[in-house]
Write a protein that binds this DNA or RNA. Structure first.
Lengths: 184, 184
DNA sequence: AAGTGTGTAAAGAAAAAACTGTACAAAGAA
DNA sequence: TTCTTTGTACAGTTTTTTCTTTACACACTT
C-alpha cells in the first residue's frame, strides 16, 4: 500500500492536517491515562501508521531522541496500548498500536485502578483491625469510643465502595459491561 | 465530641497511626484522579476531620503554607471531593469532604472524561469530514483512495468507542450503573 | 471612615520530571 | 572469533511543576 510520505501533493498536506488534528487531540487528553503529552503524541502518531514501526522511525517523525522513544514505547506497552511485534528481515524492534480502544480502557482499569484499589483495601483493612482492638481496650472511655466508632464507620463505608469498584472493574475485564452498555 | 488532639494517651498515638496509614494510602493513589501526592494527602487528612476545617488548620496539620492549602482546596473542589461550607461565628472559609465516594467517582468522569471525550469527538468529526471531501476529490487515484479508506475506518471506529464511553459516563451520572452493579 | 483578618495572585525558589547524549551490553552477521 | 547494530541504563541538562514568601484586594468590624 502507498504510504503517506510518498505523496507530495496538496492532498497529502490536507490528509496530514486532518490526521494531525486527531493526533493532537488524542495526545492532549491522554493525561487521563497518566500519560505525558509527548507520549500521548507518540501514541497518536502510531495510531495512523499502517504498519509496524521502529524506534528510529518514530524518533524521526517526532523529532525526539531515540531514548525518549524507547521509554515512551515501554510506557505505552505497560498500558497495553501498543505491542511489540516480530518482523523478519530486520533486527530492530517493531511496534504497533493495539487498535481496540474498548480493550485499552478495560486494561487501564485492570492495570492501574485495580492495583490502587487493592492497595487501599489492604491499608483500610489493617487499620480497621487496629481500631477494633482499640475499641476493646477503651471500654471505660465513652468519648474515645465514640471517636473510634466514627472512624470505624468511615473505613467500613470506604471498603464497601472499593468492593463495588472491584466489581465494576471485573465487569470491564470480563466484558460483561457490554451486556449492560452495548457497543452499539 | 472529643477531638483527636485532646487525647494525649498511648491510645491516641495508636489511632493516629491507623489513620495515618489510610491517609497515606489514599493520598498515594489519588494520582489516578490526576491529583498530586500532597493534595491527595490533604484530602486524606480532611477525610478524618469530623468537622469543617479552615485553611489555617490544614496548613498546620500538613506543615505546608496556607497558599498551598488554598490551591489544593480549589483543586479538590473542582473535583467535587470537598465542599466549602458556611459556619457562623467565623470569617474563615470552612471546608469538609464530600463523603460519598461513589459520587466522587462519577463526578470525576463527568468532569474530566466527558470533557476529553467531547473534545476528541469534535476533532475526529471534523477530520472525518475532511477525509470525506478528500475522497470526493481523489476519484482517479486508487492508491490514495485506499489510504483514505483506512483512515476513515479508524476514525469511525474511534467515534463508536467514544459514543460508548459517553453512554457509560451517563450511566454513572444518572446512577443507572447501580442497577447493573449494585452497591451491595 | 479606618482598622483588621482572610484568601489568593504574583514572583521567586526548590523540587521533580522530561528529555538528550554517551556509553555499553546483548545479539546477530561476517 | 570479531565486527556491527540495536535498545536502554545512566548521568547530566533543560523544562515544568510544586511550593513558599510577599503583597494586596476584598470584606467584615468598630
Amino acid at each position: 500500500m502507498k504510504d503517506l510520505q510518498d505523496l507530495t501533493s496538496d492532498q497529502q498536506r490536507k490528509l496530514d492536517r486532518a490526521r494531525q488534528r486527531v493526533i493532537e487531540s488524542i495526545g492532549k487528553n491522554m493525561d487521563l491515562y497518566g500519560i505525558t503529552l509527548s507520549i500521548g503524541h507518540l501514541y497518536g502518531h502510531m495510531y495512523f501508521q499502517n504498519k509496524p514501526i521502529t524506534l528510529d522511525d518514530m524518533s524521526e517523525t517526532m523529532g525526539m531522541s531515540k531514548t525518549s522513544m524507547s521509554t515512551g514505547m515501554r510506557t505505552l506497552m505497560d498500558l497495553k496500548m501498543i505491542n511489540k511485534v516480530w518482523g523478519k528481515g530486520t533486527r530492530k524492534d517493531l511496534y504497533e498500536v493495539v487498535p481496540d480502544w474498548y480493550q485499552n480502557f478495560s486494561d487501564y482499569f485492570s492495570i492501574k485502578w485495580r492495583k490502587a484499589v487493592e492497595g487501599n483495601m489492604q491499608a483500610l483493612a489493617k487499620s480497621l483491625e487496629e481500631i477494633h482492638s482499640l475499641k476493646g481496650e477503651a471500654e471505660g472511655d465513652p468519648d474515645f469510643l465514640q471517636l473510634l466508632d466514627v472512624d470505624e464507620a468511615k473505613i467500613t463505608e470506604a471498603l464497601h465502595y472499593y468492593k463495588w469498584l472491584l466489581r465494576l472493574i471485573e465487569t470491564l475485564e470480563t466484558g460483561k459491561i457490554f451486556e449492560f452498555i452495548p457497543k452499539e
